[in-house]
Design a protein around this nucleic acid. Structure first.
Length: 352
DNA sequence: GATCCGTGGAA
DNA sequence: TTTCCAAGGAT
């Protein structure tokens, strides 16, 4: 008996009935149908992001914007600032674009996978997840948890990402017609708590008797993954220009790295190349130190330079603004620049 | 299909 | 310390 001939869904759903995680965006067992707005918001926040990191953001977003109409009517700058620190900022831009589309059609999300897939920020995973969880549609929901669980259940030897089509076909064979949303969440709970990347807890797994990878004796070997490329290390500069209790902040271009977010001026560093080292104005710059930050595909050493003077300066770049130091917490800076700010503030420019 | 896009926690 | 990676999407 293995996963190819056993009704996996029955065992998994029975396990889920007693072991489901209690999460803020889930309706209580036997409770009302879930609110599609909250399901959608949580799924977008959870893209490549841990449950622990999402909780506070979900609470704040639903407090400030309880319905999709409230979110659609929010100023873009406020939404971007509220997203600051969560990462992958294109999600915030798409979130607002999606809210505007849904609000314009009366506030009701499409109920089909295809209809959801057409909305900004909803790819194959999120469209399937919302269709299943919010609307009870049968959909094959495949995220990183499901990839891991399925590749182990069937001991799929082909490496990711090439094995995705095969994993999806196998996932389809075990997806039930009923309780599609519970099944999807059960697979993800299993992956998050039992069938973990390292040290899977097979002794507690409801599917251990049918899992082919467990029978091989080395379940942790799955999913097989292709080798990764090395991350380059880049050098860049950020510039702290302070005057009369305020600092000069800019707004980054809408697309690309940290797109649309407030930031300190910099020297043009990117994933592709080091910065030019050129400052936005001539003057007596003082080094404040270096911030090391790891992005997905490159590392950055950000050298922070400070300029503090009372004479009039013209940082030049339009789109900037003087931002009160006592209100910096409200600027909505992404983590890289929040680190740089801490460094600059620590070197208060007190003359020796 | 490959690349780009954040962050923080775990081991 | 460094490496890996988590409820992926857009191009």
């Amino acid at each position: 008996m293995d996963a190819r001939s056993h009704d996996v869904a029955v065992d998994l759903l029975a396990w889920y009935d007693t072991h489901a995680r209690k999460l803020p965006w889930r309706s209580p067992p036997g409770g009302r149908a879930p609110d599609p707005y909250r399901v959608w918001l949580s799924e977008v926040m959870l893209q490549q992001t841990t449950v622990a990191a999402v909780k506070a953001y979900f609470a704040e977003f639903t407090r400030r914007w309880p319905t999709v109409h409230d979110l659609a009517n929010a100023p873009e700058g406020e939404v971007m600032a509220a997203w600051a620190g969560l990462g992958y900022y294109a999600r915030a831009r798409n979130l607002l674009a999606c809210a505007l589309q849904v609000s314009a059609r009366g506030g009701a999300f499409p109920e089909t996978e295809d209809g959801l897939r057409a909305l900004p920020g909803l790819g194959a995973y999120t469209a399937a997840a919302v269709a299943a969880i919010a609307f009870g549609q049968r959909a094959v929901v495949v995220d990183a948890n499901v990839e891991r669980v399925v590749s182990r259940l069937f001991a799929i030897e082909d490496p990711l990402p090439g094995s995705r089509p095969s994993i999806r076909r196998h996932a389809d064979t075990i997806t039930p017609d009923e309780r599609a949303g519970d099944f999807a969440q059960a697979m993800m709970d299993l992956g998050a708590t039992i069938c973990t990347t390292r040290n899977p807890r097979c002794l507690l797994c409801p599917l251990s008797t049918v899992c082919v990878a467990r029978q091989t004796g080395e379940p942790e070997r799955f999913p097989v993954k292709a080798a990764k490329k090395a991350r380059p290390q880049r050098q860049g500069r950020a510039f702290w220009i302070e005057r009369e209790g305020a600092v000069w902040l800019v707004r980054r271009p809408g697309k690309g790295m940290l797109g649309g977010m407030r930031a300190l001026p910099d020297d043009g560093w990117s994933a592709r190349q080091d910065g030019s080292g050129k400052a936005p104005l001539e003057g007596a710059w003082e080094p404040a130190g270096v911030v090391s930050h790891g992005f997905t595909h490159f590392g950055l050493d950000l050298h922070v330079a400070t300029y503090r003077g009372n004479e009039t300066v013209s940082p030049g770049a339009d789109g900037g603004e003087w931002w009160r130091l006592d209100a910096l917490a409200d600027a909505g800076l992404p983590t890289l620049f929040a680190k740089a700010v801490r460094l600059a503030l620590a070197t208060t420019g007190v003359d020796a």
